[in-house]
Amino acid sequence: MKVAVPVDDQNMGTTVCMSFGRAPYFMIYDTDTKEHIFLDNSAADSQGGAGIKAAQAIVDHQVDALLTPRCGENAAGVIKAAGIDLYKTESQSAISNIDSLVAGKLSPLNDIHPGFHNRKGR
């Protein structure tokens, strides 16, 4: 299974980024082969619609699940339309969230927020 996580850095010790659309990178991790890549998020400095553009990139990498602390409604619309499962991260470390997912311990992300639209979220 291919999993995507918004992250702050390009290494395996990285923390999960609090923002999906404006995360600097995405970690794409294959839970079967343990292979991974880091993807530059070209949407990070978008004027608007960052969540949509970031979600498009995630969809194009044909992942099965997205692990994120939160997700705006536009991005969630894209992710769901592509049939990608959405899970809520429960700790800081990206890899430990992936381990939790494999162990069946992550919950689906249901609280979709209306979007920060370029305002700083907390």
Binding site: A43, S46, Q47, G48, G49, A50, I52, K53, A55, Q56, V59, N74, G77, V78, A81, A82, G83
Partner: peptide
């Protein structure tokens, strides 16, 4: 689209009217 109001998902174009 510099406002990212369009996405192409599951072989369909989606338009985000509010964006």
């Amino acid at each position: 689209c510099r406002f990212n109001a369009l996405a192409y998902i599951a072989e369909r174009l989606i338009v985000f009217e509010q964006i």
